[in-house]
């Protein structure tokens, strides 16, 4: 009898604490989601409502904002901008997955001279500020006549320049049992066969993480696109949004934010579809580092 009363007494304050915790988290979540709600609401507001009212909900849904946004910017349609963005992000994904997994396999599993120093160098390049190499890279691509093409945005990804992903895949491959390759070697597999038929299929989770992060980061990238692309018909969604930056009048607000919503949509969809990979991938990057 006494034990049951003591447990109920002990449990009660605990429930309050948990309730407060949930209430706090929920409140924080609402604050955090506010900018997104604001974006969605503003994309549907008529011009005169944007600044005038604090009311988040539009008085009248102005779908024409989206119609205007679909016409695009500088006579380039949104479909074109979307295709350009997809092309760059897609190319970057393919490049990163191929080149980073190749390099990662060598670092994780093969023996070669200077492996230690090269690995340390690779890790150091994760911290290298992009701006230190940017200007000469620009000059190189300029010499090659590649400025205002997509090559400067895609080609580096095929050369495993994003060391973060090499590191991510190395960490994953180190976790795979070595017996697998030894078995493959006894069966007569060389390093290439065992990479393609044994290791690569098992590395799939890390490759998916690499692919999704590459897609999202390339999609959001602004700086590189800003310096390399200048013809409006080659612009991406991000660059097209940029042309709104200079316009300070609020009359363009509706279409501008409608286009912003369109630009965020792929990321939101990717997040909803792959959130487990993204969260786990991020979590693992820190633990083993």
């Amino acid at each position: 009898m006494t034990t049951t009363t003591s447990t109920t007494v002990a449990r009660k304050p605990l429930d309050w604490r948990r309730l407060a915790l949930h209430a706090g988290c929920l409140a924080a979540l609402l604050v955090m989601l506010y900018p997104l709600a604001w974006l969605l609401a503003t994309s549907l507001k008529p011009a005169n409502e944007v600044i005038a009212s604090l009311n988040l909900l539009p008085g009248k849904l102005e779908w024409s904002n989206y119609k205007t946004a679909l016409d695009g910017v500088n006579d380039v349609s949104v479909t074109r901008l979307l295709t350009n963005s997809l092309l760059i992000a897609g190319g970057a994904v393919v490049g990163n997955v191929i080149s980073c997994s190749l390099a990662a396999y060598a670092f994780a599993r093969l023996r070669f001279r200077f492996r230690g120093p090269l690995f340390a160098f690779m890790i150091a390049t994760i911290m290298l500020p992009h701006h230190a190499v940017l200007i000469p890279q620009y000059i190189i691509f300029n010499q090659l006549g590649m400025v205002n093409t997509y090559w400067p945005l895609i080609l580096p990804k095929f050369l495993a320049t994003e060391a973060f992903f090499v590191f991510l895949i190395v960490q994953f491959m180190r976790g795979l049992p070595r017996e697998l390759e030894e078995a493959a070697r006894i069966d007569g597999c060389g390093p290439f066969r065992s990479f393609f038929s044994v290791i690569l299929p098992l590395t799939r989770p890390a490759l998916i993480t690499t692919a999704i992060f590459t897609f999202i980061w390339t999609w959001n990238d602004f700086f590189t696109q800003l310096i390399y692309l200048f013809s409006p018909e080659k612009f991406t969604l991000t660059l097209a949004l940029r042309s709104f930056v200079d316009a300070s009048s609020t009359s363009a607000f509706g279409p501008m934010f409608a286009m912003s919503v369109i630009a965020l949509l792929p990321i939101v969809l990717f997040f909803l579809a792959f959130q487990r990979f993204l969260v786990e991938g991020m979590a693992n990057s820190g633990i083993k580092g």
Binding site: L39, W219, F222, T238, L241, F244, M256, S260, V261, I267
Partner: peptide, 8 residues
């Protein structure tokens, strides 16, 4: 990191 959110 996106331009959309920066504009927001």
């Amino acid at each position: 990191a996106s331009m959309s959110i920066a504009l927001v």
